[in-house]
């Protein structure tokens, strides 16, 4: 039995990269714009379906299809921000309204995809099927290796943006204290636009990677963002690095947990872990301080 453990860990890392990608986009918006951005899942699904449309239906090359999918997803993300979230922010809508609105948007996009593409599962067909590497203890496909590589590369890029660029610094200033940031001349709405651009790009890339690893189906966004969100809570809501760590943590726990429990209980494992964290360590792994509403 223990011989399958390395494979389970590798599976956990693959799932973890996907969760961490979803969690990073969600957490970035939560960190800077301060609301539960569940509609990030819808953007992930949008990215995957755009890629399907460009690469498989229209037959464009992978690189061009990828770039177009990222561009289209960013446009939709921005459109949703301007049409829905901006009016809500202007009205100073409560966090409850923001949360419910983002869940409603998530469901709206999954029905839209259902209406446009039908309920059948879509498969992204790669030119080559990709190699399978056998390391004896575990196997991994080249695609899966790419997923882990892309995820880690993206986190590094995000880290650089946050730490080194002016806009990243503005984001951190806003996240820390909005009124102080405004006093020193930061325009929140302008920074939010950048946040949504980055989160849109992240969504598209995660969507494409998920689509390649698994399949495309209208409710994929719901499933992914739930996991991304759980990762974010476990890692520390409001912390981007925490969410990434949370993503890998949840990926590993789910897959190693399958050793003990039937596969169907994967979801149960992650939710139970999340609820345990909320009750016992609400600040998450990285110990982000709880937002105090009083």
């Amino acid at each position: 039995m223990p011989s399958i453990l390395p494979q389970l860990i590798i599976n956990g890392l693959i799932a973890g990269s996907i969760y961490a990608l979803a969690a990073a986009g969600f957490a970035l918006v939560y960190y800077v714009v301060k609301f539960q951005y569940f509609s990030h899942g819808a953007m992930i699904a949008a990215g995957a379906y755009f890629f399907f449309l460009f690469a498989n239906v229209l037959g464009l090359s992978f690189a061009i299809a990828g770039i177009l999918a990222i561009a289209c997803t960013i446009i939709i993300t921005l459109a949703v921000n301007y049409l829905v979230y901006l009016p809500l922010r202007k009205r100073k809508a409560t966090s409850n309204v923001m949360l419910i609105t983002s869940v409603v948007l998530l469901m709206f996009f999954s029905s839209l995809i259902l209406a446009l593409f039908g309920s059948s599962t879509k498969t992204l067909v790669l030119g080559s099927e990709g190699q399978i590497f056998d390391f004896g203890l575990f196997t991994i496909t080249s695609l899966q290796a790419y997923i882990i590589f892309f995820a880690i590369a993206l986190f590094f890029v995000l880290y650089l943006i946050m730490k080194k660029t002016r806009i990243g610094k503005a984001m951190r200033a806003l996240a820390d204290n909005k009124s102080v940031a405004q006093v020193v001349g930061i325009n929140p709405e302008r920074v939010y636009t950048y946040v949504f651009i980055i989160s849109g790009a992240f969504a598209a890339v995660s969507g494409i990677l998920v689509g390649l690893e698994q399949n495309l189906y209208p409710k994929m966004g719901v499933i992914i963002i739930i996991k991304g969100f759980i990762s974010s809570v476990v890692g520390g809501l409001g912390s981007v690095p925490g969410s990434v760590i949370g993503g890998f943590f949840i990926g590993l726990i789910e897959n190693v947990g399958v050793w003990y429990l039937p596969t169907g209980y994967k979801d149960l494992i992650s939710f139970s872990v999340m609820i345990l964290f909320l009750l016992l360590r609400p600040q998450g792994i990285l110990g982000v301080k709880l937002r105090d509403d009083t």
Binding site: Q36, S95, N96, L99, V103, I226, F229, I230, V233, P262, G264, Y265, K266, D267, L268, F271, S272, M274, I275, L278, L279, P282, L290, R291, D292, D293
Partner: peptide, 24 residues
């Protein structure tokens, strides 16, 4: 007793727990 949005979040999570349990 959970603070902030955490009550909402847990109750949202219950939906998925219920789905997992009823399926399995």
């Amino acid at each position: 007793r959970l603070k902030g949005d955490y009550f909402q979040i847990v109750t949202l999570g219950l939906i998925f727990i219920a789905i997992a349990v009823s399926r399995n």
